[in-house]
């Protein structure tokens, strides 16, 4: 040990900042996808640091399925205003017009049209050639092999057999017109790293992450919060107040809560270390089929 040591979080941070700057330097038109979740919040903080004392030189974009928790949208708007972000909010108008929603069309159709298709439309509309995402390799098996610069063809498709070798910290940023790269600057962070960093840096997060009495119905074993009156009446009738928190955030009808007493970051971590359920199990969309994340990635979802 000498005076020139940094801890593991600072090491991960330096790596991520390096990636973010590299993208800003090499691509014409990058965008940072902002999902309002904790991972996104960390990623945006890293971007702010990468260009300090200047401003982040690219826009943030939120693909809004219109089914997000109210608290998420409120948080997004307030925080973006406070920080002066250049924030694009994109909604799939065709999907809205067709009345697509998880209750009427099921999670698969809803996610495909309002999330995956919406993202692809937005990428095409603004002609982004690089899009940052907050995915981490430890979240799920098929992500463990994901590159940091993940190449997508003109149709935004991911081909697991055709990914570029990635060595040292030298990233190949060359793409032809229409092709793009998804960039995952926090690939090497774990869930615990994210919480630790939020704690160390005092990063504001959506209050849904903390335990509180919330109106809950139980659907197929998932604890779903009744966030607005779009919840079908026959289900909403069964609402009970329960003290819960969310480990991941998404569309409210598709995101399961867990019963919890954890109302601080420390308690969340404590709970995480003892109550052992990995975080993606509370996200309903993963269970559609075996290796389903891999399937979705091939189709263009992250």
């Amino acid at each position: 040990m000498n005076e020139y040591t940094i801890n593991n979080l600072r090491q991960l941070e330096a790596e991520s900042i390096n990636i973010i700057r590299e993208v800003a330097a090499e691509f014409q038109n990058p965008v940072m996808l902002y999902s309002i979740g904790k991972d996104s919040s960390v990623m945006v903080r890293l971007a702010e640091k990468a260009f300090a004392p200047g401003k982040v030189p690219f826009p943030l974009m939120h693909v809004d399925t219109t089914w997000k928790f109210k608290e998420m949208t409120q948080f997004r708007d307030a925080y973006a205003k406070e920080k002066g972000w250049n924030l694009i909010v994109y909604k799939n108008q065709k999907g809205i017009d067709a009345g697509i929603g998880p209750f009427t069309h099921g999670s698969k159709v809803h996610t495909d049209i309002m999330k995956t298709q919406a993202l692809l439309q937005a990428l095409d509309k603004y002609k982004f050639d690089a899009a940052f995402g907050g995915a981490r390799r430890d979240e799920e098996k098929s992500r463990a092999k994901e590159r940091i610069f993940s190449f997508r063809d003109r149709y935004h498709q991911w081909d697991p057999k055709n990914q570029r070798p990635e060595l040292w910290d030298i990233y190949n940023a060359r793409v032809h017109k229409g092709e793009s790269i998804r960039v995952f600057p926090i690939s090497n962070w774990t869930e615990l790293d994210i919480w630790q960093y939020i704690r160390m840096e005092n990063i504001p997060i959506v209050p849904l992450y903390f335990a509180k009495e919330r109106p809950i119905v139980e659907l197929d074993g998932n604890l779903i919060m009744v966030d607005d009156d779009r919840m079908p009446k026959e289900l909403a009738m069964m609402t009970r107040m329960r003290k819960v928190r969310f480990r991941t955030l998404g569309c409210y009808p598709l995101t399961g809560a867990i019963e919890s007493e954890a109302d601080t970051i420390e308690k969340i971590v404590e709970e995480m270390m003892t109550v052992t359920v990995s975080e993606r199990t509370t996200r309903v969309i993963d269970f559609d089929q075996e290796a389903s994340m891999e399937q979705k990635k091939r189709e263009g979802y992250f």
Partner: peptide, 14 residues
Amino acid sequence: DIKEFLDQDQKKDL
């Protein structure tokens, strides 16, 4: 306690 745990965890190297 958990605070100590986190403080210690934060100092680990990689």
